[in-house]
Amino acid sequence: MNKTAIPLAFLQIGQNAVIKEIIGGRCLKRRLKEMGLAKGMTVKILKNDHGPLILALGNSRIALGFGMARKVLVEKIEVPKAK
């Protein structure tokens, strides 16, 4: 497991992160993957206030239960601001 990887659920609104690993059952993994939440994909947190999270994944928006967001390990990244 990557040392700097933290659960997605711990991130704040507005932060960006790259998905490193998904822990948990096979069914969950499969489901997340086909929704595009796969290793190497970049997501941005749009909402995280202890309910389900809302993520931006490219142009799509994905609602993700808080419990599941704890099983998605990510690495924070800085994204340059738009000009």
């Binding site: 489901r31 997340l32 609602a63």
Partner: peptide, 12 residues
Amino acid sequence: GQSAPLVMELPP
């Protein structure tokens, strides 16, 4: 068995 966990796309 589990009900569908909340992983859902929010279309624009």
